Simulated assay, not measured.
Amino acid sequence: MQLKSLRMFEAVCDGGSFGVAAQRLHTVQSNVTAHIKKLEDEVGAQLLMRASPVFPTPAGRTLLQYARQMLQSHDQALALLQSRQLAPGQARGTLRIGSMETTAALRLPPLLARLRRQHPDIDLELDASPTAALLTELTAGRIDCAFVNGAAPQSDLHSWPVFREELVLVSGQPLLRFPTADEFCASVFLAFRQGCSYRQRIELLMASMGISAVRIMELGMLDTILGCVAAGMGYALLSRSLVEVQQQRFGVHWMSLPGKTGQELAWVDTCFVTGAPQGWSPVLHAFAQLLGVDPQARQAQPVPLAMAA
């Protein structure tokens, strides 16, 4: 059954006339008659008594009940999907978010809490993975958006910088000076698995110091990395804001990256990445609003860490 036919059927029942229905729907009476005949053929029953006024048969009353529900659901869904500015509590559905683990641990909790307060009917799913894996998941449509290091290289993805992080060297012992190349060669770096953007910065930093083969041990989880660094197992390269939050818990120490090359490698932008805005769901629009993302401008103001407090 076509929604157009159901709308005409509803109009005839409400107006008591094929002619009145045609006027309300800005069409000709023969078009209304044809759609009603098509509906009756589809359901295998007479739906209207052709009297004056026209009224529904028992079968017609049954269909009218469902027709109103279907038309109402259609109109509500259309209005919601066409809306770009959602009122509090209006967004409904599931938002599938991908994020680097450091961003998920530090930046997202206050944002997600605020999103849920504004739209209680939103359900959230979070996948914490390295940047390369997140871009693969996003391109395959398994997540709706992702927080990754830097803009996405794929032309079909859209990126907006939302956070700026300073990467620092993390150690289990106080750092009175920056370690030498020999000291780094005698130790290891603890990092996330291959595809992590921070891991790439480790390799670039070591290359700038003339170290061609740095030893990197994959530990996977943030707490494991910090715990092993605190135990003296090796170094890590993590965001300063994250280390400052976790410093008391793990007893780790940190130092800024020295020199021009170090500072160039230290600062990284975390970008909010999605597919084309034309395909966004209402819940994704609500999240983008919260982040200050303008789908047209492709840019956003950095979100303060404590904005949801």
Rank of each mutant, 00 (worst) to 15 (best):
Q2H: 14
E101V: 10
I143D: 00
V32N: 11
N149K: 05
A151M: 12
V28T: 15
S256W: 11
A300M: 07
S241P: 05
L86I: 09
R24G: 08
K37G: 05
A309C: 15
M206E: 09
V32Q: 11
Q82N: 10
S159W: 02
T224E: 13
Q247V: 00
C271M: 03
G15T: 11
L222D: 02
A191I: 02
S17V: 10
F163V: 04
Q29T: 15
R116H: 10
A91E: 05
F18W: 05
V54K: 10
A181N: 14
E137F: 00
E218N: 12
T136F: 08
R68P: 04
L290A: 06
L237I: 05
T136N: 12
V214Q: 11
L167I: 09
R193M: 12
T94S: 03
L167Q: 10
M217R: 13
A67H: 07
N31P: 11
N149M: 10
D127A: 09
L265D: 10
I225Y: 05
V54I: 15
Q2N: 15
Q263V: 12
P109C: 01
Y235T: 01
A230G: 01
Q248R: 05
M8R: 15
V54R: 13
V273S: 01
A191M: 11
M233S: 00
Q76M: 09
F147D: 00
L39Q: 04
T27N: 14
A132F: 11
L6S: 09
G275S: 01
W254D: 05
F192V: 05
T139E: 11
M307L: 15
C271R: 01
F287T: 03
S155T: 08
E165K: 13
A45Q: 14
D294S: 13
Q46V: 13
G234H: 00
F9P: 04
L64I: 07
Y198R: 08
S5H: 15
L237Q: 04
R164L: 13
S99N: 04
L134E: 03
K260E: 15
A21R: 05
A286S: 06
L291D: 03
L138D: 02
V303G: 07
F55V: 10
P53C: 12
T33P: 05
F178D: 08
G251C: 02
E42P: 13
A146H: 02
G251P: 01
G262K: 06
G262W: 06
Q29Y: 14
E137L: 06
F147P: 03
M49V: 14
V303M: 12
K38R: 12
F189E: 01
G89R: 07
P277M: 01
T139G: 09
A191P: 04
H285A: 10
P302V: 08
F250D: 00
A67E: 07
S208I: 04
F272G: 04
C228H: 03
G98A: 02
L226D: 01
G275F: 01
I225G: 03
A207E: 06
N31R: 15
